[in-house]
């Protein structure tokens, strides 16, 4: 039996020292699991969070990012729709993003404080320049969703 190679090769990048190029062209799935409801919500223009259902739990505030299971007592949580308004807790402007970023820099990043929510969600401003304490409202990528956290953005309220 004779083995025939398929004709593809690893491109030679440098002879000395010898370095070759390996191509990666496949996709990698990403499983949202129980958190998928949050991303589905964004596509429908809704901001969803979770709240612990255990009356004896020490934490009754809402989590966004959501948790299907309570971090403090491990009880199941319930989904709640959260008013899509908040204030800018902190911000930056990213001018040099990494390879996979889906927007052209510079992009203003923000962390948002929302009343009744115990987390400070990381997000970005679609329009305007952020300032500390600025009131902002959520806008949703319902027309052409990316199916990622980028479907949620904020504009001055």
């Amino acid at each position: 039996m004779t083995v025939k190679l398929d004709g593809t090769k690893a491109e030679l990048l440098s002879e000395e020292p010898m370095v070759i190029k390996n191509l990666k062209t496949w996709y990698h799935m990403h499983t949202y699991g129980g958190w998928g409801k949050f991303f589905q919500g964004l596509k429908q223009g809704k901001l969803l969070g979770t709240r612990c259902t255990n009356p004896d739990c020490q934490e009754h505030r809402i989590f966004i990012p959501p948790r299907v299971d309570c971090v403090d007592c491990w009880a199941k949580t319930e989904w709640v729709e959260v008013p899509a308004v908040g204030t800018v807790y902190t911000f930056s402007q990213v001018t040099y993003p990494g390879e996979l970023f889906r927007a052209k820099p510079p992009v203003p990043l923000i962390s948002v404080e929302i009343e009744g929510v115990c987390t400070k969600l990381m997000s970005y401003m679609k329009e305007g320049q952020p300032e500390f304490g600025m009131k902002v409202k959520a806008v949703f990528e319902t027309e052409n969703p990316t199916n990622t956290i980028l479907d949620l953005a904020w504009v001055p309220a």
């Binding site: 990403h30 949202y32 958190w35 990012p65 930056s92 990213v94 040099y96 993003p97 990494g98 390879e99 996979l100 970023f101 889906r102 992009v107 990043l109 969600l121 990381m122 997000s123 970005y124 990622t148 956290i149 980028l150």
Partner: peptide, 12 residues
Amino acid sequence: DFESELGWMYAA
């Protein structure tokens, strides 16, 4: 899920 997409950049 919630952060990497926002810049893919730890410095940010």
